[in-house]
Computed example of a mutant assay.
Amino acid sequence: MPLLAALPEDRLRALWSHSLPRRHHAGEVILSAGEPAEYLLLLLRGRVSVATTTAAGRVVRFGDWTGPCAPNKVAVIDGRGHTATLTAVTHCTVRSLPRSRFEELVDDVPAVRRHVLRLLAQVRRDGLVEVTRHTVAVLAPELLALRATESGPRTSYRRNHMG
């Protein structure tokens, strides 16, 4: 798992001793939207689906994650809770690392800190790209309509007075 790849063996053993092993069957909810993010989920084997339900009842799927990975890193980092539900697509083997232990890793291990910083930069970049796409999709028709109304009189003026 990239997040833990640079850890020395002794640190990895200590981490494992502080994490809780669990297994989940296909179809089982592992984490629910709205729950506090008290543990970093280390998905060792298996695949999870990540989705949320809007206030209007529409299900929005964010995709599937296959282990090894830590699919709830952002929720654990920002501490504001899970914004999506993780459901096992296949049989999953996980370990749950207390948030305080994860924060210690971020504080103490430069490689983990760099990984988290890259993740946050990517999340920010993806968010900016999405905002830009949304803004263009919303504003482009309005700008085209505005340009058409602005160029209409000028074209007409030129034809009538300059031509």
Rank of each mutant, 00 (worst) to 15 (best):
M1I: 08
M1P: 12
L4V: 09
A6F: 04
L7K: 00
R11P: 01
L12F: 15
R13G: 07
A14D: 12
S17G: 03
H18R: 13
P21L: 11
H24T: 02
G27C: 00
I30L: 03
L31T: 05
A33P: 02
P36F: 07
P36E: 00
A37V: 07
L41V: 14
L41H: 13
L44Q: 06
V50K: 15
A55D: 11
A56W: 06
V60D: 08
V60P: 04
V60C: 10
F62N: 07
D64T: 15
W65V: 12
T66H: 04
G67H: 06
G79A: 06
T83L: 12
T85R: 08
L86M: 06
V89Y: 04
H91S: 05
H91M: 05
T93Y: 07
R95H: 09
R99K: 14
R99G: 05
S100A: 12
S100Y: 08
R101T: 08
F102S: 01
E103G: 05
E103M: 12
E103Q: 07
V109Y: 02
P110N: 06
P110K: 00
R113S: 09
L117D: 09
R118I: 02
Q122F: 10
V123L: 06
R124H: 10
D126Q: 12
L128A: 14
V129C: 08
T135N: 14
T135P: 03
V136C: 14
A137W: 14
L139F: 08
A140I: 02
L144G: 12
A145L: 09
L146V: 05
S151R: 14
S151W: 13
P153W: 08
P153N: 01
R154I: 15
R158F: 12
N160L: 12
